[in-house]
Amino acid sequence: METKLHSFLNSDLLNKYLVGETSMEESKEVEHYIYQYPEVASAYEKLQDNLQVIAKAGAMDAPNHILSNILESLDEINETKVIQLVQKNKTPWYSIAASAAAILFAVTTFMLYQKNQQLNSENTIVDAEILDLRSDIDKNNSKLDELSKELLKLNNPDAKKYVINGNERAKNLKTVAYINSVDKTSMIDVIALPQLPKDQHYQIWAELQDRMVNLGILDEADRKLKQIPYMEDALALSIKIGKNGDDTDNNSTEVAEISLKEE
């Protein structure tokens, strides 16, 4: 009930009722609230007082000589005795209505302006949030697409899985290689790599019939499925420790190896 009363007081029905612009149903509703709720009756009395003050402030008294002229004219025409009328400073009803209408228009215009400003501000915030949300959705969709493609590659029946464990030099090392000889792709998943000095790094190599080929660097900080070059007719994969800036096989130390030959 308090919410309904609050909504009624925030409406313009009292103002419209005061200046006679309400319909019959609206008038009944206003009168019900006035008689039922002291808060509404008090608000209505305040509106009446304010209207009287504004109307009186804008009202103008007729010059005194006009009334005298009218009385003299009536004496000449009717030759009857005219009773002197007492002039009262009474505000015409149409002046009150006009003032009330002006106040109502000003208040309504100001309220609409405030609501419009508020809606514009809220729309700006909502638009920004929608743009951020769309951006996040696009990024998540892109990540999901990449993950879906990776899963398809891993689940492909043509892809072979090779678990590469470290030897005595790197017991905690573990990686998994996925090689698909049909679509010519190779991927490696870094699971664990023992920490190395700052001047060293892990390298993955492919052993061919007549040479070794460096396939890239493995980094513990990049623990995700990583694409590596596919080498046709590779006999084995090995992981070695090399020095930074040196991509040759001359001074590297092998810490893991797995054969790719079919038994």
Rank of each mutant, 00 (worst) to 15 (best):
Thr3Met: 12
Leu5Trp: 02
Asn10Asp: 14
Ser11Trp: 08
Leu13Cys: 08
Lys16Ala: 15
Val19Arg: 15
Thr22Ala: 05
Thr22Phe: 10
Ser27Tyr: 10
Tyr33Thr: 12
Gln36Lys: 11
Gln36Ser: 03
Ala41Met: 05
Ser42Trp: 11
Tyr44Asp: 02
Tyr44Arg: 00
Glu45Gly: 10
Glu45Thr: 08
Leu47Ile: 03
Gln48Ala: 12
Gln48Lys: 02
Gln48His: 02
Asp49Pro: 01
Asn50Glu: 14
Asn50Met: 02
Gln52Gly: 01
Ile54Cys: 07
Lys56Ser: 05
Gly58Trp: 00
Ile66Arg: 03
Glu72Leu: 03
Glu72Asp: 04
Glu72Ser: 00
Ser73Asp: 07
Glu76Tyr: 04
Glu76His: 05
Lys81His: 05
Ile83Asn: 02
Gln84Asn: 12
Val86Glu: 11
Pro92Arg: 13
Trp93Ser: 15
Tyr94Lys: 10
Ala101Cys: 01
Ala101Ile: 06
Ile103Arg: 04
Leu104Tyr: 12
Leu104Pro: 03
Phe105Trp: 15
Ala106Trp: 01
Tyr113Gly: 09
Gln118Pro: 13
Leu119Tyr: 02
Leu119Phe: 04
Glu122Met: 09
Ile125Asp: 04
Val126Leu: 11
Val126Glu: 09
Ala128Cys: 02
Ile130Thr: 09
Leu131His: 09
Leu133Gln: 12
Arg134Gln: 13
Asp136Gly: 00
Asp136Leu: 05
Asn141Cys: 04
Lys143Gln: 13
Leu151Gln: 01
Asn156Met: 01
Pro157Asp: 07
Ala159Tyr: 05
Gly166Arg: 04
Asn167Arg: 09
Asn167Ala: 09
Glu168Met: 12
Lys171Val: 14
Asn172His: 11
Val176Lys: 14
Tyr178Arg: 07
Ile179Ala: 13
Asp183His: 11
Lys184Met: 13
Lys184Gln: 14
Ser186Asp: 10
Ile188Ser: 06
Ile188Ala: 00
Ile191Lys: 15
Ala192Cys: 07
Leu193Ile: 06
Gln195Glu: 10
Tyr202Leu: 04
Gln203Pro: 02
Gln203Ser: 05
Gln203Glu: 10
Ala206Trp: 11
Ala206Asn: 02
Leu208Val: 04
Val213Lys: 13
Asn214Leu: 15
Gly216His: 15
Asp219Pro: 02
Lys224Asp: 13
Met231Leu: 14
Glu232Ala: 07
Asp233Ala: 03
Ala234Gly: 01
Leu235Val: 05
Leu237His: 02
Lys240Ser: 05
Lys240His: 11
Lys240Gln: 13
Gly242Ala: 08
Lys243Trp: 12
Asp247Val: 15
Glu257His: 15
Ser259Val: 00
Lys261Thr: 01
Lys261Gly: 03
Lys261Tyr: 11
Glu263Tyr: 13
